[in-house]
Amino acid sequence: MAGETDLTQLLKTMQPVRQEGEYVFCTLANTTHCPPHLDPVGYFKEAEGLTLMVPKSQADAAGLAYPAVFALITLTVHSSLEAVGFMAAIATHLANHGISVNPVSAFYHDHLFVPTKDAERAMALLQSLTDSACSQSPA
């Protein structure tokens, strides 16, 4: 099943959902595999080490350091990995309101890590982006 590529349709139907809990980014140097006691929502291998996106509670239990705490917002529309401008529109809209975002695109959905303190405002701004897309184009 192919994901949506039309930017207007993506913005109209993104349906953001805030996931439960708090999340952090941690790094483990000199390893390419996640320790079995951690269950990350995502990870990325970099030259400097393995970056893990894990629930804050797991990082705390493992004694892992992290620089900030994030909320995780999932955009439930099935977006195509080849969609043009979707993340740019979202990141720009949030940035225009002083909210940083660390987007992660997976096969079915896009996920946004935003500072926990800004999560509710980010949800409202995402809704305003949807409302704007709906009012600017025919249904």
Rank of each mutant, 00 (worst) to 15 (best):
A133F: 06
G49L: 15
S135N: 12
T8R: 15
A29M: 15
T130D: 05
M53T: 02
A139E: 07
D6Y: 03
G42I: 01
K45M: 09
T32C: 11
M123R: 05
D118F: 07
M123D: 11
I73E: 07
V114I: 07
Q136G: 11
K117C: 13
H109I: 07
S80N: 04
D39Q: 12
T31I: 09
L7R: 00
H78T: 00
T116H: 05
A89Q: 04
E48A: 15
V84C: 12
T8L: 15
K117R: 11
D6H: 08
A65V: 06
S135E: 07
N30P: 01
S137W: 04
A61I: 06
L10R: 02
S79V: 08
V104Y: 03
H93E: 09
C134A: 11
G21D: 11
E120A: 14
V104N: 05
L28N: 04
H37K: 12
H33Y: 05
T76F: 12
G98I: 04
D110P: 05
A133P: 04
H37W: 00
V101R: 02
N102S: 14
Q15R: 14
P55Y: 11
A62N: 08
L7K: 00
G3N: 07
L129E: 00
M87I: 08
L125E: 01
M87Y: 03
T130S: 11
Q58I: 10
T74V: 05
S128W: 02
V41L: 13
H97M: 08
G98V: 09
A61L: 12
P35Q: 06
K12W: 01
L64S: 04
A29P: 04
A119P: 02
S100V: 08
L50K: 01
E22Y: 03
G21T: 08
A68R: 08
A68F: 01
M123G: 06
S100N: 10
S137I: 00
A119T: 00
R121F: 04
F25V: 07
N102H: 08
L50W: 10
V84A: 14
Q19D: 11
Y108W: 13
A91L: 09
D6F: 04
H93R: 14
P115M: 13
A119I: 05
A2F: 11
K117P: 01
T92C: 14
K45W: 00
Q15F: 14
T27N: 10
E22T: 02
L50C: 07
A122V: 00
L10D: 00
D6C: 07
L64M: 10
Q136E: 14
V41F: 13
P36I: 08
H93N: 13
Y108D: 06
M1Q: 07
G85D: 09
A95T: 05
R18E: 15
A83M: 05
A68K: 10
T31S: 15
H109L: 12
A88D: 05
V114Y: 09
A89W: 09
P138C: 14
Y43W: 15
T32G: 13
A83D: 03
L10F: 03
L28F: 11
N96F: 11
H93W: 13
A65L: 13
Q19C: 14
D6N: 13
A59S: 02
I90E: 03
V41T: 06
A95I: 04
H109D: 06
I99F: 10
G49S: 13
M87C: 04
L50N: 01
G85H: 15
P40D: 12
G3S: 07
T13M: 09
I73H: 02
H37R: 09
F113V: 01
L52V: 02
L94T: 01
M1T: 08
L52P: 04
T74S: 14
